[in-house]
Amino acid sequence: MLVDERERFKDQEVVAAPVKSLRGQDEQKLKPRQSPLFQGWGENLSDEDQEEAQALFEKYGYNVFLSDRLPLNLELPYGPDLSMSMKRNALRAAEIWMDEYKHNVNIAWNIPIKDHGIDIGDVSERKELREKLKCKPFKWYLEKIYPQLDTWDNILAYGGMKNLDANICIDQGLIPGHTPIAFDCFNYGPQHTYYHSNGELYIGGLKSHKYNDNRCLADSGEDKFPDLYDCHEAVQKGMGIHWDFTQGKELKNRQTKRCLEIQKQKLVVQKCTGQKWEIQNIIKPF
């Protein structure tokens, strides 16, 4: 079921801007002021869809309407939805070339490790060719050619994270902003979570380079709402960023001993009451 974001952003400011109609006549059409979202795209959307697209762009920082929220009943202006073909090709390339790092493609695309339903076909000939050409292992590439790339070795689980008691998910909330929220589960980018072996829980994306910082779910211990900051910044503020978690059980901050829970449809940190959480995809047992 698609999530309706309009109610959350119904007060977004839009202004009228002239655009050319198909008949070459000027007409007034809603178009957000100075927005890079609509440069070369979106003139043919309805007023309502323009408002929704801009609201999502303001929240997430990229064109969620056109990409992550597919399928919507919207024909892409530049061609068909190629996401499944791209996922298939990415999984094929990973199977052939990436060795023990092939699961990084699953993490990047939020594809289950097993039973994902994508047929990558027979890659045996490509593997034989790689062996015949004596290509170096992918680990050599990471160490010698692109050492800045984060290998994601310590990611244990990823995907949407749902509260099983309230049937609602963690969402990164407004960007820019530092307050994660609870929202209906739709498991696209803003709701992607990543559980690290050290107990850090990243929300809304995973950085691909070692020199970039992920955004950690944090508990300041000072109020009942959780925070979302770059991990180093959260530590500097004295926040607890490490969480004890077992699939299907509570999510407890190690520093404050409080649990992430849902109270009246809001995301809170409070004395643990036994609420249970589940993350979509498990890489390694924990």
Rank of each mutant, 00 (worst) to 15 (best):
156 L>G: 02
137 P>S: 09
143 E>Q: 13
116 H>S: 02
109 W>K: 10
125 E>T: 13
150 D>Y: 10
140 W>P: 01
148 Q>K: 11
131 E>Y: 05
115 D>R: 14
123 V>Y: 11
143 E>A: 10
109 W>H: 10
111 I>W: 06
113 I>Y: 10
129 L>D: 07
153 D>E: 07
124 S>V: 05
154 N>K: 14
116 H>R: 01
147 P>G: 00
116 H>Y: 11
153 D>G: 09
105 V>S: 06
139 K>I: 08
120 I>S: 11
109 W>Q: 11
124 S>F: 02
112 P>E: 09
156 L>H: 02
156 L>M: 13
145 I>T: 09
111 I>G: 02
132 K>V: 03
105 V>A: 13
140 W>L: 01
125 E>D: 14
111 I>V: 08
129 L>N: 05
119 D>L: 11
131 E>I: 00
117 G>C: 00
113 I>F: 07
158 Y>N: 05
154 N>F: 08
137 P>F: 01
114 K>N: 15
133 L>A: 11
138 F>M: 04
149 L>A: 15
145 I>V: 13
127 K>P: 06
128 E>H: 15
114 K>G: 01
157 A>Q: 02
150 D>N: 09
107 I>K: 11
139 K>V: 06
125 E>S: 09
115 D>P: 07
157 A>W: 05
130 R>Y: 00
106 N>F: 05
140 W>R: 03
152 W>Y: 13
156 L>I: 12
155 I>Y: 03
156 L>K: 11
127 K>V: 01
152 W>D: 08
118 I>H: 02
158 Y>H: 04
124 S>Y: 03
155 I>P: 05
155 I>S: 00
